[in-house]
Design a protein around this nucleic acid. Structure first.
Lengths: 203, 203
DNA sequence: CGCTAATCTAGAACAAGTTACAGACTTGGT
DNA sequence: ACCAAGTCTGTAACTTGTTCTAGATTAGCG
């Protein structure tokens, strides 16, 4: 349902594409120091050398902007992960390994993680399509990691739970209520569902 | 770690306690229509017949206020649930049943749920103690439901994942990206972990 | 080229969370 | 009953997300 996202509207000229990039870059830069609060629309506009009104034309709210930033970062991550697939013995190990790798990437830029994840979970209905795109990307990353060609419905349910756990555990970590180790445990616990919900499934 | 919460500061006189109640009541009322955005600090102050500065003395931010509102509502829920414990055969069924009951309660006041859950996941470090209190309450509710007297570490991990799933699934539901049925499936899927992570554990 | 519609810019204006402050009211101790 | 300290009220100011507007620029097209 609703298979495609934004890009169907207008093809975007070259200069527009460049503006969009500059904005996303500025967003990630400001988020990188200071996190969610440091991404101030006026500053993003200035850093991207774009008028405030233009920024709002490209991204109708701060949340839209940060969710788009996350989508952008996730795509990089997905590409990176594809190059070195996880090496675990079973699907759950591979999923956990991949998420832990992603987690370590986030740990290197905790403020950026803060901005993106907070925006993602704070988003209301007006951002649904964009959040959904991020969610599909995340699902794809996890499914890719498992190496499962034809996941059962149970395994898809397990992936949903893993994704929930992933987001929520990140939130706990970002707000200082869970340690890095605890996030690791939570991810591994959730990942067990993949193998437990179906019969044996070896590589 | 950090076992106790706010109430250690000052005992609060009767009138102060009354003010606090009025504020929480006003908060829940406004949240009940309109959700997160409808809880405007000026309006809360007016509805609670309290000056804006006073509101901020009691709750240092809108997020603090809404998290406290959630804590308040959860306590009611906990008391209600205790009266009619779940009747499932095993721990995971009872946990799922309890969470579904809580979910139905939230469905009756979706706007209130929106305000509380969005605040909870948006909270930053400055609200950690309060969010932690809510988290402990939630854990207690789930553990109560399972009926487990001495949960194993694995089961505690499972409860953590269930809690993550609970919060994140609520978020998806509130932003219209997951159906009620889907939330139910996710909850049940996560709850399976309780039985799967330990040996047989019957009532 | 020259026109027209769309886009972009600069900047003001508005909304809601948050802070600050002066003066009135309460409280607790004597 | 009186005083000092702390609290509450009413209100203005400040911050940052968001909207609006008038004029400049750009893009596409004949």
């Amino acid at each position: 349902m609703t298979a495609d996202a934004r890009p169907a509207a207008t093809p975007l000229t070259e200069r527009q594409e460049a503006r969009r990039r500059r904005i996303l870059h500025a967003s990630a830069l400001l988020a990188g120091r200071g996190g969610f609060e440091a991404v101030q629309m006026r500053e993003v506009a200035e850093a991207a050398e774009v008028a405030l009104g233009t920024l709002y034309r490209y991204f109708p709210s701060k949340i839209h902007l940060l969710v788009a930033t996350m989508q952008d970062q996730l795509q990089h991550l997905h590409a990176t992960l594809r190059k070195r697939p996880p090496a675990g013995d079973d699907a759950s190990q591979r999923a956990a390994e991949t998420l832990m790798r992603a987690f370590r990437a986030l740990q290197r830029r905790p403020h950026l993680a803060d901005a993106m994840v907070r925006a993602l979970t704070f988003a209301d209905r007006s951002v649904s399509p964009e959040v959904d795109a991020v969610s599909r990307l995340t699902t794809a990353i996890i499914l890719d990691a498992t190496g499962l060609e034809h996941p059962t419905p149970e395994q898809l349910s397990a992936v949903r739970v893993i994704e929930h756990t992933w987001h929520s555990a990140l939130i706990s970590w970002l707000s200082g209520r869970a340690s890095i180790a605890q996030v690791g445990i939570d991810i591994e616990t959730a990942c067990r569902l993949i193998d437990l919900t179906a019969g044996p499934e070896r590589a």
